[in-house]
Amino acid sequence: MDEMLNNYLVKHLPDTEAWVKELENQAKIDHVPIMDPVGINFLMQLIRLNKPTKILEIGTAIGYSALRMNEANPSSKITTIERDDSRYEQAVENIKKQHKDNVIEIIHGDALDELMKLANKGEKYDCIFIDAAKGQYMRFFELSQPLLEENGVIVSDNVLFRGYVYDPNFEHPRYKKMVEKIRAYNEWLVNQPSFITTILPIGDGVAISVKKS
């Protein structure tokens, strides 16, 4: 997103509570990637509109997005998966600090394994949010499909990845393979016959995939 446009949008976002600023600062200090302000506010607005009863998040990090989704719809039950030990412990602490551990369940494990376990248990969710290892997005989406309610929605974050995805001349050695995987995911995603997908240039790029009825 254009920097001037992003600054303009950030300037017009709703005010946040002190705990939100604390988590954003914690993420900055610890170099933990969380959704940017414009992106998280869009996700929250989506949740306010749809009012999902059950939300599944793939990629908890420090618990920031789970807590913000709860803020958008406090009646939602949220399940979130995190494999990194340190981030899992931070998320547990942050969620307990906000007294939300009764409505936000954190699963400590690899999402590729945990998604299959949830499917075997017959779990269903109205909204699934994918924000974990970018190279695994396609597999995350495939494993999420059996967990999604009819007319449910899957939201994928970072699908434009700093604008590199739509830059035909992008050749950075550090990110080249990741960008190629995200490009492939986007092409695959918009051609899924059971979903209608829209990719929006919000935050770092958000894809909204609605399951066809």
Rank of each mutant, 00 (worst) to 15 (best):
G39S: 14
S76C: 05
L46H: 13
A27W: 05
K21H: 06
Y88L: 01
N25F: 10
I55N: 02
R48K: 15
I81G: 01
Q26H: 11
V38T: 08
P14Y: 11
Y64Q: 01
D30Q: 07
H31G: 04
E17V: 13
A61T: 01
A72T: 07
E71N: 11
E93N: 11
A91V: 08
A66I: 08
P14H: 09
R87E: 02
K54W: 02
K77H: 00
I62L: 14
P14A: 13
D36Q: 13
L67W: 00
D85C: 08
T53P: 01
G39R: 09
S76E: 01
F42A: 12
I47M: 05
V20R: 11
A72K: 09
I78C: 01
E93S: 14
V38K: 04
N50S: 15
D85W: 10
D36H: 08
K51T: 03
N25C: 03
R48T: 14
I58A: 08
Y64N: 00
T60K: 06
V20P: 02
L49E: 10
R87K: 06
R48E: 15
E71V: 10
S65D: 05
E89W: 08
Q45W: 09
P74Q: 12
S76M: 04
D85Q: 11
K28L: 15
A18P: 06
S75E: 07
S75F: 04
S75Y: 03
P74S: 11
K54N: 10
T79W: 02
D84H: 12
P33M: 11
S65C: 09
A66S: 14
D15V: 11
A66K: 07
L43M: 12
I78W: 05
T16R: 13
G63D: 03
I29G: 04
N73W: 15
M35Q: 03
D30A: 02
S65A: 13
N50Y: 14
H31Y: 04
D85A: 13
M44L: 03
